[in-house]
Amino acid sequence: MSDLERNKQVVVDYYQTAFGGNPEKAVNDHFGDRYIQHNPDAADGPEAFTGFVTWLRGEYPNLKLDIKRVIAEGDMVVTHSH
C-alpha cells in the first residue's frame, strides 16, 4: 500500500471514529502533540475537538458522516463529506 493510500485510510478512520461517537478514541489513535482546527466554530487542541464533536452529536443525535471522496497529494489529505 502506498503512503498516500495509508494516509487516506488514517483520515477516514479518524473521521468515522470521531463522528461515529467516539472522539476520544479518534484523538488517542490519530492526534499528535498539536492539533490546529480549521473550523472557525471550534477551538484548537484535542480537548476542544472532543468537546466540539460531543456537543455536535448532542445537538444532532442522528448525525451521520457520509464521506463522498478522499483525495491525497503530498502530505495533505482532503475529504468531501456530506
Rank of each mutant, 00 (worst) to 15 (best):
R6A: 11
H38F: 03
V12T: 04
G32R: 05
A42Y: 06
G51V: 04
R6Q: 05
D66L: 09
T79R: 08
N39T: 01
N28Q: 15
G51F: 01
L65A: 14
H30N: 08
W55L: 13
I71E: 12
Q37M: 02
R34G: 06
D66A: 10
D33Q: 12
F49P: 03
V77P: 07
R57P: 00
G51R: 08
D13A: 05
H80A: 13
D33A: 13
D75S: 14
N28I: 05
D44N: 12
M76I: 12
G32T: 00
G20L: 01
M1A: 10
S81V: 12
P40K: 04
D44E: 07
G58F: 07
P61D: 09
V53P: 11
V77W: 08
E73R: 13
L56W: 05
G74C: 09
K8H: 06
Y35E: 02
N62A: 10
Y60V: 15
Y60C: 11
A72D: 04
V53R: 09
P40A: 07
H80M: 12
N7Y: 01
R6G: 02
Q16E: 15
N28C: 06
I67V: 13
F31H: 13
S2V: 03
A48E: 03
T79F: 01
G32C: 03
D66R: 13
F19T: 03
T79W: 02
A48K: 11
V12N: 00
Y14M: 03
E5T: 13
N39D: 02
V53H: 10
